[in-house]
Amino acid sequence: MAISSVRARTTRLDLSTGTASERADTLAVEEPLQLEVDGEQLTVTMRTPGHDVELALGFLHAEGLLTSADDVVAMRHCTDVGPDGAPTYNLLQIGARPGSRLAGDRVARPFPTTSACGVCGSVSVEDVLSRAPAAPTGTDDVRVRAEVLAALPDALRAAQSTFERTGGLHAAGLFTADGDLLCVREDVGRHNAVDKVVGWALREGRLPLRADVLVVSGRASFELVQKAAMAGVPVLVAVSAPSSLAVSLARGAGMTLLGFVRPPRANVYAGEHRVDVAAGTGVGRPPTSVLT
């Protein structure tokens, strides 16, 4: 059973009075997860236990090693015993479908990762664009109303059950263009949370995510836009700032990227045509001088 939080004893200091008191606190769990494909180690990432199969599927999809859940014929945890004698579930064994890219292309690709880094095999905007599905165009392209965008951060926050206990996890949520929550996942690594959401969508047969909105609880870095682009996500919403490379990738991929989505305002850095802005909403035109 995956444990996402633990209790720990702490000493609380009151810095204004110089007093101290003991109390229990709840901490987010961070443990390594080793991925093995056909008996060979692929990578080790630090993550919050839970939804490990989705995490693995999302990671492999973002790296272009699988396009369908059918490329994986088996997945199972190999249990071990931790220092405290309790079982751990930190090794995930994956069986690749013979003839799939996962079975062949992984050999020459090392993937050292941590809970803070999601860019492993993809090292350039051009590399991602060459593998990401084409952005939707025309009358079937998704549009999101400003009032829906304004409600998304609070909707994501309300669904973060482990964050409520620990205050120490990132989150990613997949929403419809009308603001209905489809899936939310939490993790110590922001890229892990996105991988878990994409892995869920892969298992559900929903990829590419042409009509949905991905919301992340922190900043929009390159690796998050990478993963969203690979999943076909048209709209990425971040509560905090994007990086310059994230904006470049979003523009190149034809995505809509919003940052600082903190009602009543938001910045649109790319793809403003998908934002349905009504008068008086407080969501203005996107900045034109972010990148040139």
Rank of each mutant, 00 (worst) to 15 (best):
V235D: 06
A220S: 13
V184P: 02
N267Q: 15
G252V: 09
A241C: 03
L169Y: 03
P153C: 08
M255L: 09
K227R: 13
P208I: 06
A146N: 13
R143W: 01
A238I: 09
G254I: 03
P263S: 11
L245W: 09
T162H: 15
V142W: 00
L181T: 12
R157V: 13
Q226E: 14
H191Q: 09
R251F: 02
M255N: 05
F175Y: 01
C183H: 08
A193Y: 00
K227M: 15
V225F: 02
A229N: 09
L152F: 01
E204S: 14
Q226W: 12
R262Y: 09
R203W: 08
F260G: 09
N192E: 11
R157Q: 12
S243Y: 04
M230F: 10
N192R: 07
V148K: 08
A270L: 01
V148Y: 06
R190C: 06
R143M: 04
S248W: 10
K196L: 07
R143H: 15
K227A: 15
A211Q: 11
G199K: 08
D212F: 06
V142Q: 01
W200S: 13
D141K: 15
A231D: 14
G199T: 01
T139I: 10
D178S: 13
A253S: 03
A171I: 05
L181E: 05
L174T: 04
V237R: 04
E147F: 13
A266N: 02
A158W: 04
G189H: 00
M230A: 10
E186Y: 04
E164V: 08
P234E: 12
R206I: 11
G271I: 15
R145W: 05
A171V: 01
A231W: 07
P263N: 13
R210P: 02
V194W: 11
G189V: 01
A238M: 03
Y269W: 10
R190K: 06
L156F: 02
L207T: 03
R185D: 08
A171N: 06
E223M: 10
G199E: 02
N267V: 03
N192C: 14
V216I: 11
D187N: 11
V268H: 04
L249A: 07
S240C: 11
G259P: 02
E164N: 06
R143T: 14
G259S: 15
V237S: 00
L181R: 07
Y269I: 13
V261W: 01
E164P: 05
V235L: 08
V235Q: 05
M255W: 01
R203Y: 09
E223L: 05
D212R: 06
H191M: 09
F163W: 15
P234I: 00
N192I: 05
D180N: 13
G218T: 03
G218Q: 14
A270C: 01
L209R: 07
V237L: 05
T139G: 15
E223Y: 05
V268C: 11
Y269R: 14
L152D: 07
T162V: 13
A177W: 04
L245P: 03
R206N: 08
F175W: 05
D178M: 10
A193T: 02
L182D: 07
E204A: 13
V142F: 03
H170Q: 03
D178T: 13
V198N: 07
